[in-house]
Design a protein around this nucleic acid. Structure first.
Lengths: 161, 161
DNA sequence: ACGTGAGTTCAGAAGGTACTGAACATTGCG
DNA sequence: CGCAATGTTCAGTACCTTCTGAACTCACGT
């Protein structure tokens, strides 16, 4: 590992701090941050470990998490040794669409069952919150789709101009 | 603390598990879950501690966090001793609108600066992600507003019918 | 003004989690 | 087939966070 702090490395460390503040392991955030800006975009585990000063074990665990979340994918490395990864182009879109809202909605569904249904005394706030998360869960994918559409449109406009 | 597991208590414990899985202290989730369904809706610290089997210290810390996040507010308790809290009616709406997306966007702005601007080599993915979070940050409040509108409309329709 | 109950703060303990490093497995190349 | 390098697993460690319990402060009511 190099001890000098390149801008890339600096950003990866920042990402580690932010993500760990959200309950993820720091190494997870560092890997994600690095993969967001590294050149070339695909990196092997060894390269990642070296670039970020992490042990092979940490990289292995972190990459497994990233793969599970579909934030990263393996890329074939013909000729070269080892497995390389790169960030999914729409990693962050997926992260936002992800099931964090579903988890909340399900929690509240369970709560409504425990209380004895929507009309049970004291269930009004719970039902309202459940409705809200169901709404978000339903609408967010559409919002993301709209971003993609609008962004592509802008890109075309720029290259036309 | 009572050791029996009422439905309300059970739900609060569930909420503690879910929230702690998201990087929040378990006590924070328990308090939030309890306040979402308790009857009456306003509860003093002592009542909360008793209901959830938490120490006064934990309740104090947890309620401070909830207050900071504007998820809970103090309610005046004329006559009675102590401070009572109740959940903000739109607590979860606020939680979704909250600044988690801003944090990401700012992280990526910082990254772009470190790399030397939007056109720096390797900055394309970062710029795209930044655009995305900026978009979400902009649109989510509108989505939440739409939920409120539609929900109110539905309520009127129900009470009219 | 005093006493009582409520809330905050803080030090210490307990528990949990992430990281490391070494042993093991696996894959590609000579 | 063996060598070398890569990736995985796992036990141990170090760290960090949360919770408790006690001491303290504060405010109300009598």
């Amino acid at each position: 590992m190099s001890d000098e702090l390149t801008p890339e490395r600096h950003f990866a460390e920042d990402a580690g701090v932010v993500l760990s503040g959200m309950g993820m392991p720091p190494a997870f955030g560092k890997l994600l941050g690095w993969l967001l800006i590294c050149d070339p975009p695909h990196q092997t585990s060894t390269e990642l470990a070296h670039a970020l000063g992490l042990s092979k074990g940490s990289v292995s665990a972190g990459m497994r998490m990233l793969e599970n979340g579909k934030l990263v994918r393996r890329v074939p490395t013909p000729g070269r040794r080892g497995t390389a990864y790169e960030m999914t182009p729409e990693a962050f879109l997926r992260a936002v669409e992800s099931d964090q809202y579903r988890v909340f909605r399900e929690l509240m569904e369970r709560g409504l069952e425990l209380l004895g249904g929507e009309d049970a005394p004291g269930a009004d706030r719970l039902a309202y919150s459940r409705d809200f998360y169901a709404f978000i869960e339903r609408e967010l994918p559409q919002l993301v789709a709209r971003f993609k559409r609008e962004h592509d449109t802008n890109k075309e406009a720029r290259s036309d101009g």
